[in-house]
Amino acid sequence: MMESKMVGEGVKFERIRRITGYLVGTLDRFNDAKYAEVNDRVKHSIGTGNGEFEEV
């Protein structure tokens, strides 16, 4: 029986991020400082998820 052909070897996931207003398709193109900045980003809590904000 023939084995099924394998595809996608070496194909990386694209991770699109916004850097100073522009989208960038691959993290490889970030300069060192921006790479660190993107890694440090934390999520901002939105609250209940029903469109209501929790006041802090």
Binding site: A36, E37, V42
Partner: peptide, 22 residues
């Protein structure tokens, strides 16, 4: 102590804060 200075007037990206407060 980090590899970057925070953009303009932004609250630092690493600082935990709610969307509303930010």
């Amino acid at each position: 102590d980090r590899a970057y200075y925070t953009n303009s007037f932004h609250v630092p990206v690493y600082f935990p804060i709610s969307a509303f407060e930010k």
